[in-house]
Nucleic acid binder design. Sequence first.
DNA 1: AAGAGCGTCAACCGCAGGCGA
DNA 2: ATCGCCTGCGGTTGACGCTCT
Length: 249
Amino acid sequence: MGTMGRSESGLKKGPWTPEEDEKLINYIQKHGHGSWRALPKLAGLNRCGKSCRLRWTNYLRPDIKRGKFSQDEEQTILNLHSILGNKWSAIATHLPGRTDNEIKNFWNTHLKKRLIQMGFDPMTHRPRTDIFSSLPHLLALKDLIENPEQAIRIQNEAARLNNYLTYILQPPPLPPPDLASLTFPPPLQESFIQDSVAFGHMPDLMTTSCGRGQPDGSWNTNTGDASSYEGAQTWSELQLDDPYFHEIA
DNA sequence: AAGAGCGTCAACCGCAGGCGA
DNA sequence: ATCGCCTGCGGTTGACGCTCT
């Protein structure tokens, strides 16, 4: 198209320049944003009000926290997503300095992928049980079976998968939270968000995130003793962060 | 060295809801 | 009741940078 970043109305689109940012910041610092629709003209910007609002709320606002999400923040997002679903703005109200857009991006590019790798349905936060989602795991297992040198590993894996399947076939330790009794706002108690037993069925990224656990990337010390997995009730006990789960995903 | 493929994230689009006239 | 305006939200896109081959 020949509009080169301009809309039908001649307004600029696309990435913001430092000069535009400066104009927007200066204007809002002096006058507040007021009507977003009126702002661009008043601030001398050739943008639509919507673009200005987005730029301000997602990037220029002084209280924005930038940089990597902490483990606590990750866990909070995961917990809240399990009750709220894709209500990014609601989730953002519990993460000071984070925007809904940032959280949404972080979810889509990191957390969702990680849950899928771990065999969870990212929408329900429960283990996936459909055959197609298990196919990669099954194919990987077939590979292992065809390789006699890995017999011991297979034996261990069988025990792991047995536990995994046992878990899948069990009801969660606690029923899902009673959504009707949860009102938003007022905000949830932070301790509830991060520690509540209501999230007991969910993976704990504090203990299952990539690269944590065995610092040398080796198998868990339980490796080789299949019986040690018997009776595993929680995700952290199941060691779904084992390199193998990433390997076969 | 180069280009294909992939991941990330800022920004856009369309829609829904709130509100005043 | 309904119309139009405005804002906020969630899904999606596309540019850019990095990695892999």
